[in-house]
């Protein structure tokens, strides 16, 4: 049973950032703007959030969970800021959305390294990880569920689920969500009934920026004790999770956890007795998440539900 607990706890560390970032990407793509810059925005979010934590930890003795929440806000703000450059190019300048996304992906790691070396003369930014919650009071003592969900965890895990719940409600149950989806499916129709397509698309991209920024921070905190200008390709994986999840919150949740579980098995197989005995080389295990995703996709992609106007700049004058 302890193996199961361990697996679930580990899966959270891999899945939650994917979930948050993929949900962010969902808002952008549902509004009609492809956001391939998720990776770059994650890096900028992680960079600013970790730098903030680093500075605060050395200056003030703040309660760790409060500090984490503030860092999340910093990462979100920086994410929004970076995503606005993408939004401007994609919406106002009607540029090819892959181009500005690529530019951000290239800019972010370079900037993170350059800035870190300027500020600290080394490119790594260390932080003290005192954000881990050994056991949530009361909830952690529930049998089975307690060890599964409320021990050895981070505040960010619950943040991830909160983002999921809010996203699902916002997308399907609010006027905003309906309008956002309309802009991604048929912007001309949305415009004809008085929806400001540009504004909706800006909002979509801004949400994706905020969530990607947070996702970057959420990825780094449980898995490392320093930030080295990289989020290990998780932005691209989140893009894959988004497509795998067919642009729908519930499926994105499934996709993120499917991938996270595979990733956990790949990285922690030596701790799982029957897998460790098989003697399969390490690199083969590491391939499993990607191969499994491809196979699942091959069987499930027949009907793609991509937003129809995705990637097409909205032009008021076009028919």
């Amino acid at each position: 049973m302890s193996t199961v607990y361990f697996l679930v706890q580990q899966t959270m560390f891999f899945s939650i950032p994917l979930l948050i970032v993929a949900l962010g990407g969902m808002f952008s793509e549902r509004s009609g703007v492809i956001n391939i810059a998720l990776e770059g925005i994650m890096i900028m979010g992680a960079f600013s959030g970790i730098l903030f934590i680093n500075v605060m930890q050395s200056m003030f003795g703040m309660p760790p969970q409060l500090l984490l929440l503030l860092a999340v806000l910093v990462a979100a703000a920086v994410g929004v800021l970076v995503s606005m450059t993408h939004a401007y190019a994609a919406i106002n300048m009607k540029a090819d959305q892959v181009i500005s996304g690529t530019a951000i992906n290239m800019f972010a790691p370079a900037f993170a390294i350059f800035a870190a070396r300027m500020i600290r003369s080394v490119q790594q930014i260390p932080f003290r990880n005192d954000f881990r919650i050994a056991s949530v009071p009361l909830l952690g003592d529930i049998p089975v569920l307690g060890p599964l969900l409320f021990r050895n965890t981070y505040l960010t895990t619950y943040l991830g689920f909160a983002v999921l719940a809010v996203s699902a409600v916002a997308l399907y149950k609010t006027r905003f969500g309906l309008r956002l989806r309309a802009c991604g499916e048929h912007p001309q129709a949305a415009d004809s009934v008085g929806v400001n397509v540009y504004k909706m698309r800006y909002t979509g991209v801004a949400i994706s920026g905020a969530l990607a920024g947070v996702g970057g921070l959420v990825f780094v905190i449980p898995t490392s004790t320093n930030f080295n200008a990289s989020v290990a390709g998780y932005g691209f994986l989140a893009l894959a999770v988004l497509i795998f999840g067919q642009w729908q919150p519930s499926r994105i949740l499934f996709a993120a956890f499917f991938f996270g579980l595979m990733k956990t098995i790949a990285s922690a197989y030596s701790g799982i007795p029957f897998l460790a005995e098989l003697g399969i080389p390490n690199d083969i295990y590491k391939m499993i998440p990607y191969v499994a995703t491809l196979i699942v996709l091959a069987f499930t992609s027949k009907n793609s539900m991509a937003p129809r106007a995705e990637g097409i700049p909205y032009d008021k004058g076009s028919r």
């Binding site: 893009l239 497509i243 795998f244 083969i284 091959a298 992609s301 009907n303 991509a306």
Partner: peptide, 26 residues
């Protein structure tokens, strides 16, 4: 995969990047 199963080429390519990297390491 794209032509026959309608798998988005972006996601298939990202997966193939990682599979290729680990396969080559192995």
């Amino acid at each position: 995969l794209k032509a026959l199963c309608n798998v988005n080429e972006v996601i298939a390519c990202i997966m193939m990047n990682y599979i290729g990297m680990y396969a080559v390491n192995f």
